[in-house]
Amino acid sequence: MKIHLTSVFVDDQAKAEHFYTEILGFVKKHDVPVGGEDRWLTVVSPDEPDGTELLLEPAGHPAVKTYRDALVGDGIPLAQFAVDDVNAEYERLRGLGVRFTQEPLEMGPVTTAVFDDTCGNLIQIATKPQ
């Protein structure tokens, strides 16, 4: 079994597409209309174009708001991405106006930080395991 695709709910797919590609630097993999305004919209890391896809899923279901508001309130991230250098990424993203709820924090071998994806989620970045 493999983890081929995982998803985050996003308030607005167009906004999410912008943030996840232009700001975070992922590349779009699939973009297929699936009825109404909704799209099957996935992104991948430019380093691994055939790697795990992240589905930017419409947050239309009424349960999503309650679920996310509670988690975001407590600062709990809904996904984690690996980066080479958390501090460098923190500076880069902050320069682009990204809001962090947790600044880079060194905890033993791992450094993490948490930011707001502007689409309703908190995302954690962490140093890649060596």
Binding site: G75, I76, G108, L122
Partner: peptide
Amino acid sequence: EKSGQTLFEICSRLSMKHRLGISR
């Protein structure tokens, strides 16, 4: 050490820095 922490950050510090096995 740092004021202004979310519950998540406090939990992370306790588990990762202090190795405290403590629930949220």
